[in-house]
Design a protein around this nucleic acid. Structure first.
Lengths: 219, 219
DNA sequence: GGGCAACGTGAGCTATTGCTCGTTTTATAT
DNA sequence: ATATAAAACGAGCAATAGCTCACGTTGCCC
C-alpha cells in the first residue's frame, strides 16, 4: 500500500481499440466494486475481469487511484446530467416548488446505481479531494445559492451561506442514507415529502401547505 | 489485507501490568490515527509508538480490527457519557427545549476530540457493523423516540419512525460535517440555533419563536 | 526459593498487491 | 510489402503489512 502520487493519465488512447480497452477496464472496476466491495478491488483482479492484461491497464492508468478517480468522474458526470436543466426548468417557480423538484431529482439520482453509489461514497478511502470534485461541489453550491438569492425576500435565515450549507448537507445525506436504511420511504415518496416540508419551513419560517392532505394517523 | 475474522479478545489481562499495556497500546493507536491518519495505522507502528513489542499487542488483540474496534468502543463510551442524564434532565421540558438541549449536547460532543472523531467516522473502513455499535444506535434511537412519543400531540409528521430517522440523521451529519467545514458557525452557536429551528418547525409544523431576536440583515 | 503462569519480546514467515519492463501483436501510412 | 508506432501482453519484482512462535522475564503463591 504505497503512497500514491498525483497521477494523470499515462497515455491518451488514440485508436478505437484502445478506447474500448479503457471502457472495458472501467466497467470491470465498477462491477467488482458493486459485486465484491472495495477489498476485492485490486488492479490485477480488475484486469482479469476486464479480460485484458495488467500491463494494458497500466498503459492508461498510472496507478490504482487514477482508475478509481476516472470511475468516480464518470459516475458523477452521470449524476450531474440533468441537474442544470432541472434548475433551468424551475428557474422562476416558487421556492417550495424548486425545493421539491430538487429533492425529487436527488432521490431519482440515488436510485440509478445505488450500490455503486454507496460503495464510492462509503467504502472507498477518501482519495484526498480530487480537483474536479471540488469544482463539482462548488458548481452545485453556486446553483443552490443563486436559487436562494433570487428568492431572498422569502428566506428568514440570516446567513445565506449557512442556509445553503445546511440544506445541501441535509438533503444529500438524508437521501443518501435512506437508500439503504429507508428504501420503502424513498420509493413511496414519503421521505421526499417530509424532507421538502422540513427544508421549506426552515427557509421560510412558515409551514408548507401540503399538496395532498397529510395522513393524520400514525403509521 | 486478508479478510479479518470475527475477533474477540485473545487474552484477558489479569495483572495491573498487562492492563497498563493494553491502555498504552490503545492510546498509541489513537495518537497515530490523529496525527498520521489511517494509512499510517499499522500494527507494527502502533506497537513501536506504544513502546511494546508487536507480540504483546497480539496477546490482547487477535487482529488489527479488534484493536480498532476497542478504540472505537472507548471513544463511543466517552460520547455516550452524559446523554442519558441530559435526556433525564430535559424529561418534561417543552419539545423545543429538548431539541435545543440535544443539539447543543451533540455539538459539544463533537468538539471533544474532533480529529479522532473525524478519522474514525470518515477514514476508517467500515468494519461491518460491530454488535455494540448496533446496540448503541438502537439505544439512542429509542431515547429520541420516547421523547417524541411523549409529545406526540405536538408533532405533525404522520410517521413517527420516519421523523426519528430524519431528525437523528440530520442532526448528526450536519453537526459532524460542520466540525471541519463550518467550525466558525459551530463555535458561535449560529448553526445550533438554525438547526434547532429547522428540526422544531419540521416536527411541529410551526415556526420556532426565537429566544433572542434573529439578525435581519444578511451575513 | 521454587515452581508456575502471566507477561513480554522481536526476528522473520506468509501472503498480497501495486506496478515494471522486455517482448509480441496489430493497425496505419507510404 | 515494409516501416513505424500504438496497443497488448504477463512473468515477476519490490515493498509492505498482518501475524506467529519459540524463547526470555516478571510477579504471584505456597
Amino acid at each position: 500500500m504505497a503512497k500514491t502520487k498525483p497521477a494523470s493519465p499515462r497515455k491518451i488512447p488514440e485508436q478505437d481499440r484502445s478506447r474500448a480497452t479503457v471502457d472495458v477496464i472501467v466497467d470491470a472496476a465498477a462491477r467488482i466494486l458493486v459485486k465484491d466491495g472495495y477489498d476485492a478491488f485490486t488492479t490485477n483482479r480488475v484486469a482479469e475481469k476486464a479480460g485484458v492484461s495488467i500491463g494494458s491497464l497500466y498503459q492508461y492508468f498510472p496507478n490504482k487511484d487514477a482508475l478509481l478517480g476516472e470511475l468516480m468522474r464518470r459516475h458523477t458526470t452521470d449524476l450531474e446530467k440533468g441537474i442544470e436543466e432541472m434548475a433551468a426548468r424551475a428557474a422562476n417557480a416558487p421556492l417550495a416548488e424548486v425545493i421539491r423538484a430538487a429533492i425529487e431529482h436527488n432521490v431519482q439520482s440515488h436510485l440509478i446505481d445505488p450500490v455503486l453509489h454507496r460503495v464510492l461514497s462509503d467504502e472507498v478511502p477518501r482519495l484526498g479531494k480530487l480537483d474536479w470534485q471540488a469544482a463539482f461541489v462548488e458548481r452545485m453550491t453556486a446553483l443552490v445559492r443563486a436559487a436562494f438569492e433570487a428568492r431572498r425576500a422569502e428566506i428568514v435565515v440570516p446567513d445565506l451561506d449557512l442556509a445553503v450549507y445546511m440544506v445541501t448537507r441535509t438533503v444529500e445525506t438524508v437521501v443518501h442514507n435512506a437508500v439503504t436504511q429507508r428504501p420503502q420511504d424513498l420509493q413511496s415518496g414519503a421521505l421526499a415529502e417530509e424532507l421538502t416540508r422540513m427544508i421549506v419551513s426552515f427557509l421560510t419560517g412558515k409551514p408548507l401547505v401540503a399538496k395532498r392532505p397529510l395522513r393524520t394517523a400514525a403509521a
